[in-house]
């Protein structure tokens, strides 16, 4: 099990409810780190093709239970960690991840899975150098999300929890539950809270200042210019 890793690289992750602006901040952080000449690797949530297909099958047929949903996400993160997080960390890269184990803890326990069991499951996960939590009031994030997006999907809206027959209402209740789970995790995991109601620039300056302090012993190794990744981490 990895836990507190001794690899030369650094792992920064962002967490927060949908509409907290965390992906925007991570994207800006990535661009800055690259410009500064660091070797940066970006790891997506739900990116393992193999598990993705199984998840798609489960979602399409609505055959997922809280437990199998949780285990599929764990499998996916394990694949990402074994494939896309450990090797770059060993190579001395800065690894950035949009969502990490805390997303799973929030969503899975909201679905009724035992908090102790799910924490046990993720014991293989590398401890992040810094885990940023973008804190935003629910009404603010909902306004950002619901005003400018495609229709909500079944699991994304937490319809499987049976909170409401209305997609939007279910989504709001589900997001509220996850938001409370995040607040409970701040102390438990030492999440670094960022006030996500401030301007994008103010938040980014704070994030960069925090990250910079962790980079004193990280060598700069400029990377060739490549296409940037797209950011779409909805639970669809």
């Amino acid at each position: 099990m990895y836990g507190d890793h001794q690899f030369p690289g650094k792992l920064f992750i962002v967490e927060g409810i949908d509409g907290s602006g965390k992906s925007t901040q991570l994207s800006l952080l990535q661009q800055w780190l690259r410009r500064e000449g660091y070797m940066v690797f970006f790891s997506e949530w739900n990116s393992s093709p193999l598990v993705k297909e199984t998840t798609r099958r489960g979602k399409k047929k609505q055959m997922l239970t809280p437990t199998t949903f949780s285990l599929l996400h764990t499998t996916d993160l394990a694949d990402r960690i074994e494939r896309h997080i450990i090797p770059p960390l060993k190579a001395g890269a800065i690894v950035l991840a949009d969502r990490y184990i805390y997303t799973a803890f929030g969503r899975d326990t909201a679905r009724g899975v035992s908090p102790r069991w799910v924490r046990e499951l993720y014991r293989f996960a590398v401890k992040p150098t810094i885990a940023f939590y973008f804190r935003v009031p629910l009404d603010v994030s909902l306004k950002r999300i619901l005003s400018a997006r495609a229709a909500l999907k079944y699991y994304e809206a937490g319809m499987d929890l049976g909170l409401s027959d209305d997609l939007e209402e279910s989504f709001e209740l589900f997001q509220g539950m996850i938001s409370r789970k995040y607040e409970e995790m701040v102390d438990e995991f030492g999440l670094r809270v960022i006030d996500a109601t401030r301007s994008i620039e103010e938040q980014q300056n704070e994030v960069r200042a925090i990250v910079e302090r962790e980079l004193v012993d990280v060598p700069k190794r400029p990377m060739p210019v490549r296409t940037m990744l797209n950011f779409d981490f909805r639970e669809d």
């Binding site: 193999l50 598990v51 764990t74 499998t75 394990a78 694949d79 074994e82 499951l121 293989f124």
Partner: peptide, 10 residues
Amino acid sequence: TLGPISLTLF
């Protein structure tokens, strides 16, 4: 294509 931890969880 899967590592040992991922395969265990799958």
